[in-house]
Structure formats: C-alpha cells, structure tokens
Simulated assay, not measured.
Amino acid sequence: MPPSVPGRDAEPPGRRTPESSRFPKLRLDRGTGPDDPPPPVASARFPDAPPTAGPATGAPASAAVPPPRTEPSAGGIVETTERLHRRPFVPDRPVVTLAQPDTRAVAATRPWRLALRPRPRAAAAAACLVLGLGLIGGAATGSWLTGEETGDGARGAFAVAGSLWHSTPVDRFFPPTVDGTGAGPGGADRTWTRIAVAPDSGCQDAFDPLLRQVLAPAGCLRLLRATYTDATRSHVTTVGLLFTRADAAAMGVLHSRFKDEGLDRRTDLLPRPYAAKGTVAAAFGDAQRASWTISVLTDAPVVVYAVSGFADGRTVTEPQPAADALKAGATTAPAQAGLGNEAAGLADRVEAALRRTFASATEKPS
C-alpha cells in the first residue's frame, strides 16, 4: 500500500462521492465541498514545482510533497504524478531546421565509394568513342565485303580489274573467234580462230630475260595466254594478259618508261609465243617471232602483248615492231606478210574485251 499523503488522502466519510466509494484508492482532484480549493486552470494541471498544501489540511508546505520513491506505486496514479513532477523544466526548445548534408565529411571518410562512381561527362565520352569505333569498323567491313575501295571510283575499278583473272571465263578474255574488220593490210578484213589456251601460270620463261627484268618492278601476279591463227592458217599469233601486283602509280611509271625509252620497239625485249603441240602453232618458237606489240595499261594492272609469226616455222632474222610494220611503205618481210597487222589487230581486240569485262564488273546496279 502506498503511504498516504497528508492533506490529500484524508477525507471525511460523509463526503465520499459515488466514484470514491467504488474506487477507494482513486481521488479526483476536483472540488466536492465549499472548503475545497477551486480546480486549477489548464496550464497549471502539471506544475513545474511540487504543489503546496491547501488551507483545508492545515499541514505545512514541506509536508505536502512525499519523499522520492524507487518502487512503483500499486495504484499507479501517484507514481505517475511524481514522475511528471520530476521532469526537468525546459524553458525554450531550440528550433531545428533541415539543411543540405555536408558531403565533404563523407568524401573524407569514404573516398573509395565516390571514386567508384564515373563522372557523367566521362561516361558519355566513352560511349561516343565506342559508338564511333563501331561505325568506322562497320563501314570498313562493308567496303571489304562489297569489294569497294575506300578511295574514289577509279581506284575501286583498278582493284576490281586486277582480280578478274580468277573469276572470268576464258572465253571473255580470249573469244574462240575474233572478228577483225578492216584489221588487215590495206583495210582488209581478218578473222582469227583460237587454237590453244595456255594454263594460267607465272611469268617464268614467258619473256626474254631483259624484258622480264624491265617488268619486274610491277610484279607478276598471273599470266594468261592464247594462240590464234588466221583464216588461211598461214599465220599464228600469241596474245597474253599479264596481271601485275602494281598499283595505279606504279603502272603509270611503267607506262611512261615504255613510251619515253621506246622499250616496246627494242628487239631484245620480245615476249615469247605459246607453241601448242598438235596445232599449226607447234613450230612457233623464239626464232619464228616476226612482229610484236606491248601495251602497259594505266587504268588496270595489266600488260597486254601479242607476238606473231609464220605457221610453217620459218625463221625471221629481223623482227619488226607492229607499229613500224604498219607504216606505209614498209618493205620488211613482216610488213609485207601483214604480220604487224596480225599482232596489232589481235592485241587491240583482246584489250577491248578486257575493258568491257572489268567495266561490267565495276558497274553499280541502279
């Protein structure tokens, strides 16, 4: 039982209200008689200092407050009042405002977390770099797959022409029959029939040693050759297509050298014929060479040449370039026999067929 508080728990029996009779340990702090003090105002219900005894009790002021207790009260009301009485008085509470957090302390204590976060500008630059490299790689791959050069159209056509030797049928380069309208002496017509096609090979033994040395800077990628005869089967002519490894600049240099130095007219720079066994050209060897022509192209890595002779195997001691044998008034044996016309006529038409072939190969679809 909690100790009674003088002046507060003592109450005449005749003045008990129904509530106090039902709950004897509870006392409502409200006036029940004329001698009781009036109820406190709302702000004084929980005073900051212990209450003093009222005049009805007659007890001194020091006896109005019970001593501190360490155990809780059974009724709970008195203990709760004591704890409220003991609460320290806080005159003015500080006003708290929310501000932006100071990230400098976070950066000083956890620098590794901030370092792991990439900067937006650096991330955007890296993404642009990867995208740019992907676009460049895709464009280069597309050009390679389509066979196009990264330069202008002329360079693309030049490269395509240099690769035609392994994908073009032999009849496109060397037709079985070649029509030579107006290609004979005095503008006479000629017709040439193909009698043999040499297997595609390298340039070894295809040229005289000195001519091979002159052509060496251009390189030898592949050599294609075929031998024709005229309608009378008295003349034989070998036509060759030398596909080089040179680029357009190197072919231009070679072309200028042949023209400026007259290398296409020297008798020590002759191409060799292809003498096919079992044909009328079986006896067509180096000693039977009578006239020739050599043309270095600048729009394709190709050297076109032709060499002609007699089908009966007769020896020619003074071969003559086709350009000289075609001149009016030429009296040499090759000129009189029309062998210059044979070499020049066939070379011109094979070269024209070659140009048509790589023109159609480089033509873009509309």
Results as ranks from 00 to 15, higher is better:
M1S: 05
P2Q: 15
P2A: 15
R8Y: 04
G14A: 14
R16P: 04
S20M: 10
R27G: 06
R27K: 09
T32R: 12
G33C: 09
D35V: 04
V41T: 05
A42G: 05
A42K: 04
S43K: 14
F46S: 12
P47I: 02
D48V: 05
D48H: 07
P50G: 04
P51C: 13
T52W: 12
G54T: 11
T57M: 07
A59L: 14
E71H: 06
P72W: 13
I77Q: 07
I77L: 15
T81S: 09
T81D: 12
E82N: 06
P88R: 06
F89M: 08
D92V: 14
V95R: 15
T97W: 09
L98K: 07
Q100G: 03
R104W: 11
T109C: 07
P111Q: 03
A115T: 09
A115H: 10
A115Q: 11
R119D: 13
A123P: 00
A125P: 00
A127S: 11
C128E: 12
G132A: 14
L133T: 10
L133M: 12
G137W: 15
A139D: 15
L145H: 07
T146Q: 15
E148G: 07
E149K: 10
G151K: 00
G153C: 13
S163V: 08
S163I: 04
P169H: 02
R172E: 13
F174W: 08
T177D: 00
T181I: 09
G182H: 05
G184I: 08
G186S: 08
A188E: 15
D189T: 09
S201L: 08
S201I: 03
D208E: 09
L210R: 12
Q213R: 10
V214C: 12
L215R: 00
C220F: 12
R222D: 13
R222C: 11
L224V: 06
V236Q: 10
T237K: 02
G240S: 05
G240C: 01
F243Y: 15
T244P: 00
A246W: 01
A249D: 13
A249K: 09
A250S: 09
V253W: 07
G262V: 05
G262Y: 11
D264C: 03
D268L: 04
P273Y: 02
Y274R: 01
Y274L: 01
A275G: 01
A276M: 04
K277I: 12
T279P: 00
T279A: 11
F284H: 04
D286P: 00
R289I: 09
T293P: 01
S295N: 03
S308W: 13
G309I: 10
A311M: 09
Q320H: 11
P321Q: 15
A328C: 03
A330L: 01
A333M: 07
G338M: 15
G345H: 04
R349W: 01
A352Q: 08
A352F: 12
S360D: 13
S360V: 06
S360L: 08
A361T: 04
T362H: 10
